[in-house]
Design a protein around this nucleic acid. Structure first.
Length: 151
DNA sequence: GCCAACGTTGGC
DNA sequence: GCCAACGTTGGC
């Protein structure tokens, strides 16, 4: 089993929105970055655990846990001209973008803020904290996952 | 293949 | 709203 961190802007889609989807979960559409796509397409497997991170908001940080319930499948919003995520180079015959489905597992009793994460030496290698990291999906070590969960 | 211009992310 | 740090695009 692998561990991941996924960023979402709570104004667009928050942990509470995911919670409302219950067991049905939600597909993680709209990723238009090749590195993040490759993680979803090639590496994310059923049952993998995900730290849900709120970005571009008042208190950015980790807010809960989700899990993968469906492995890579084409992101249909990429060939929908009406979608914000439309990419004319992607078609149903030759999809360029992929997504996984995740479902809510738990919400932490508090937000573990970015500021707090930075204070722990145990998390010094966390990709999220590396300078200039703009990846919206990144792998994290089991150690790091367990540590953050324990905070 | 280089690189300037442009667009995006995301913390602050 | 600012801006640093990237990623992408496209001319050459």
């Amino acid at each position: 089993m692998k561990y991941w961190l996924m960023k979402s802007e709570p104004d667009a889609f928050s942990i509470d929105d995911l919670k409302e989807k219950k067991a049905k979960g939600e597909h993680w559409d709209g990723v238009r970055n090749y590195q993040a796509r490759n993680f979803m397409r090639d590496n994310m497997k059923l049952g993998d655990k995900v730290l849900f991170y709120h970005s571009s908001c008042k208190v950015p940080g980790v807010v809960g846990i989700a899990s993968v319930i469906k492995e890579s499948h084409p992101d249909h919003t990429s060939w929908d001209p009406k979608s914000n995520y439309y990419d004319p180079k992607s078609t149903p015959e030759d999809p360029r973008w992929f997504m996984v489905d995740i479902k809510f597992e738990k919400k932490f009793s508090r937000t573990i803020s970015l500021k707090e994460l930075k204070e722990h030496i145990e998390l010094k290698d966390l990709k999220l904290l590396q300078k200039g990291c703009r990846l919206s999906i990144m792998p994290i070590a089991k150690k790091e996952f367990e540590f953050i969960k324990s905070l």
